[in-house]
Design a protein around this nucleic acid. Structure first.
Ligand SMILES: Nc1ccn([C@H]2C[C@H](O)[C@@H](COP(=O)(O)OP(=O)(O)OP(=O)(O)O)O2)c(=O)n1
Length: 740
DNA sequence: GCGGATCAC
DNA sequence: TATGGTGATCCGC
């Protein structure tokens, strides 16, 4: 009110919409979808309509808040840059050039890597089954569109757009219900064809990298001929069209696949010049790993395209520590050079890190309703975990407040306590929720910060549970035949405060039995969706647990493709890559080596990769392994990028060790048995085993945790990385039976 | 280990 | 009226 400008907020033309908001809500920047050519509506028109329909919603208000916060970050970055420039030494470009030189030496143009991406995937799957949809404007997903047919994209409809808005853009638009089975089936068919051309690494249900190097050599054909054949065969056998990008690495292929999308392809010659020329003009946002925030920050200091990275390398160097996780210096330089990983490998069962289920509902503060959601979510999650045969040590509750601001609250019962059952999930979920509800008024009374507004009564629009720090029960049980014990132990999870948990649990039980039929999904619909997609991802390859995970980050710098994704639909199929090794050497300042980038989001770290290298023969104690790990990166180094890497590596190793432990337990047989909690191996009666296991729950400290042996991993440094061949052996832990 | 932020599909 | 679900990584505590 006290604002200077006496502009009255009368009904009419309130303040004009901010450009950043227009872009955020319906911007062309989202270019993922081919809204460009042949559009029936102009970008401005689309933005205007979307803005009009959205502007009064809570969602919009939240987006405005985020927009403001982002703007603050941009201003801050600009300020830092200005500050740094005052004291710049003048050798910034030299520093950057030194790194460029170093990165350049890692360039490998010897491989032919393709990224295949199905066009409007879910939509195409529906058309395949129902030809009448051909050419029609429709979306898939119900209330929220997961994708839109090209016919609908002409009007501006896109992925992640709510149906009611899409309808404003395209009045005759219809929205189809999700049919997971359709997508999973189509995905398998596509991948089956791809497999005939080389090793593949699915990045999601509709995307996969294919290494065409060998195919080209064997058939004596050019990459263009190979990809032309591949796409033709995919269409001939599946009836679906795919777009493809081909180049010496995944980073470039990923971007290239978008160039001639729908039903098109783009091949980049395997020369340094071709790679660099191609990427120079690419808009930053098109690069895997550079999202809205990163793009905005870079735009803020004057960069628009990949080529600008070189032009402004001195600036980037100066603010290298303030670019955020998605834009590390080294990652950007690698991008500029058109470098990327080129190893194509698929992820395995053991690479999954979490399982989760979340549900959005009409915002409510009703404790009973919120509790019910927790129960339903827990039930769904328990089913998924059981099916997949995984248990986990940490349960995380996610609450999205009515104003769209979300928070997470985690609980780890004990160092060796693994959960999987419905009751445990509900108990912990309710405990976390109630704690949040109960603490809220107190915090507010004390004037402390809380998310979701200042109302002491929590009002949520979504609740979700996720289980992490997983353990592969299948491998464990198979090896030790202790499946029953494992369950028993997890069920007896100790403590868990909550005196009121009793009542809660009780209610749970009731609900447990009866299926919820009640509202929304609950049933077949969505739930099935998740389960199906998940299996899809893993099923095919599900094999052992090891695998290599994917992306590592460092290296050449980027690996966009590393992929991540998997999400949308299931998760499972990730791709993995290996890369060269590279380790660390950079000096202090620049450094970012590590994460070069990609990590952004998704993707599998590559922990398993090493673990797979050798059968479980040679072994070293955990301590040694960790020591080696830390050594690789840099010990207590600071947060410099290098540190990032080291840190990441270490985590990966720890994880690997956990798996190794399982592996180690495997050999048990005869009178030998392995404690499902501490993994120690004993020889003795069942009674003895029972007694030992019970000790774990007697008090918090379990019996002495044995040192675990792990096999030595191949040097993370150099040569190690690659070798894909030897890897396989150990994996067979679970064999084919995965059915789930 | 936890929680927030980013990113991808 | 009205804006999803799933999973991963990084960073700073
Ligand atoms: N926010 C999103 C984005 C995508 N998907 C799902 C539906 C898509 O069909 C599928 C593949 O996503 P893509 O990004 O590859 O997009 P499309 O294949 O739909 O279209 P395009 O032709 O642009 O690749 O993933 C989703 O559920 N949620």
């Amino acid at each position: 009110m006290a604002s200077p400008a006496p502009r009255l907020p009368v009904a009419g033309p309130s303040s004009e919409p901010k450009a950043s908001m227009l872009k955020r809500m319906g911007g062309p920047s989202d270019l993922k979808a081919g809204v460009g050519r042949g559009g029936i509506r102009t970008a401005e028109e689309i933005q205007h309509i979307v803005h009009e329909v959205s502007k009064r919603s809570k969602y919009f208000k939240d987006q405005e808040r985020r927009d403001r916060e982002l703007q603050v970050k941009v201003d801050k970055l600009k300020g830092r840059l200005a500050q740094e420039e005052l004291t710049a030494r003048g050798d910034e470009e030299d520093k950057a050039d030194a790194i460029l030189k170093e990165l350049e030496e890692t360039r490998d143009l010897s491989r032919v890597i393709a990224l295949i991406d199905a066009d409007a995937f879910y939509a195409a799957c529906h058309v395949r089954v129902n030809p009448e949809l051909e050419g029609k404007a429709f979306g898939v997903g119900g209330g929220m569109l997961t994708t839109a047919s090209y016919g609908a994209r002409k009007y501006g409809c896109r992925s992640a757009m709510p149906f009611f808005i899409a309808q404003k853009l395209c009045p005759h638009l219809v929205s189809l219900k999700l049919e997971p089975d359709l997508y999973v089936k189509a995905s398998r068919e596509i991948f089956a064809v791809l497999s005939k051309y080389g090793t593949i690494a699915p990045a999601s249900l509709d995307e996969a990298y294919v290494d065409l190097t060998q195919y080209c050599a064997d058939q004596d054909v050019t990459p263009t001929e190979a990809i032309t054949r591949l796409r033709a065969e995919v269409q001939a056998t599946t009836g679906l069209t795919v777009s493809a990008g081909v180049s010496p690495n995944k980073t470039l292929s990923k971007i290239a696949a978008d160039v001639n999308k729908p039903n098109g392809q783009f091949v980049i010659d395997p020369t340094r010049e071709a790679c660099m020329e191609f990427i120079q003009g690419v808009r930053l946002r098109k690069c895997f790993g550079i999202g809205r925030v990163c793009e905005t920050l870079l735009n803020g200091i004057g960069l628009e395209t990949v080529g600008d990275i070189f032009r402004d390398r001195a600036k980037l160097y100066l603010v290298r520590h303030h670019l955020g996780q998605s834009a590390h210096f080294r990652f950007l330089l690698g991008l500029y050079l058109g470098l990327g990983r080129n190893r194509v490998k698929r992820a395995k069962r053991g690479d999954r890190k979490t399982y989760g289920v979340e549900k959005t509902f009409t915002p409510t503060s009703d404790p009973g309703k919120l509790d019910d959601v927790i129960r339903r979510v827990a039930k769904s999650l328990a089913k998924d975990l059981k099916r997949a045969d995984f248990s986990g040590r940490t349960v995380t509750l996610r609450i999205k407040h009515a104003d769209f601001v979300s928070v997470t609250r985690a609980h780890t019962p004990g160092k060796n306590i693994y959960l999987r059952d419905y009751k445990d999930l509900v108990r912990i979920g309710l405990m976390l929720l109630h704690k949040e509800i109960d603490e809220r008024p107190k915090l507010i009374a004390r004037g402390e910060e809380v998310k979701g507004g200042r109302n002491p009564v929590l009002k949520a629009r979504l609740l979700g549970l996720r289980v992490g720090n997983l353990r592969d029960e299948r491998a464990l049980a198979k090896a030790n035949k202790l499946d029953g014990w494992v369950r028993v132990s997890s069920r007896s999870t100790p403590e868990i405060e909550l005196s009121d948990s009793d009542t809660d649990v009780q209610r749970d039980s009731d609900l447990d039995d009866d299926e919820d039929e009640d509202d929304d999904e609950a049933d077949p619909g969505k739930r099935a969706l998740n389960a199906v997609m998940r299996d899809a991802a893993i099923d095919p390859f599900a094999d052992a647990g090891d695998g290599e995970g994917g992306v590592k980050k460092e290296d050449a710098a980027c690996d966009p493709a590393a992929f991540g994704g998997a999400s949308g639909s299931g998760s499972g199929s990730w791709m993995c890559v290996d890369d060269y090794d590279n380790d660390a050497e950079d000096e202090d300042a620049e450094v970012v080596r590590g994460r070069f980038g990609v990590h952004r989001g998704a993707t599998v770290p590559k922990p398993s990769q090493r673990r797979a290298q050798q059968p479980s023969s040679s072994t070293i104690v955990q301590g040694s392994s960790l020591a080696a790990a830390s050594r690789a990166g840099s010990p207590p180094k600071r947060k410099s990028p290098a540190a990032e890497d080291a840190s990441a590596n270490e985590k990966g190793k720890k994880r690997r060790i956990r798996k190794e432990e399982e592996e180690a337990a495997k050999p048990a047989s005869g009178n030998e048995w392995t404690c499902p909690v501490c993994d120690k191996v004993f020889a003795g009666s069942e009674a003895a085993m029972s007694g030992h296991v019970a000790k774990h729950f007697a008090d918090d400290e379990p019996p002495a945790r044995p040192k675990v042996k792990v096999k030595k991993e191949c040097g993370s440094l150099g040569g190690g990385g690659m070798g894909g061949s030897k890897v396989s052996s150990k994996t067979k832990v679970k064999g084919k039976g995965r059915k789930g």
